[in-house]
Amino acid sequence: MTPLLRLADSDPVGIATRDILAGEQMWLGPLSVIAAADVPLGHKIALRRIAAGEKVEKYRVPIGTATVDIFPGETVHTHNLRSNYIPTYTLEAGHRFGEEQ
């Protein structure tokens, strides 16, 4: 079972199918990425450079817009991707999504 799942060939992100450690190299066909940080099961990794302002797709469906340039191997989450519909936030003090950043 590949540790990285790409739901559609055109998707710029892959999904961790298990916990992945920083520095781990993964292959998706001829494509290789190295995880820039620990990536928990289910979280997303950039498979190519994503420009700020680019719509990011998963399974060929837009899941948001990149707020900064994202580089291959970086985690894609609330720190660099925003909703095109309704913002994501929590009021819980000290709670950072996915304990990232």
Partner: peptide, 27 residues
């Protein structure tokens, strides 16, 4: 409706579990 409320049907645990936006959760 949700734009007026200012918060989507999205909980903190959704993001902890790797979902970033409401449309990704929808998918």
């Amino acid at each position: 409706y949700y734009r007026t409320l200012g918060h989507g049907s999205f909980a903190a645990g959704n993001a902890d579990g790797g979902l970033t936006t409401i449309e990704e959760k929808s998918l």
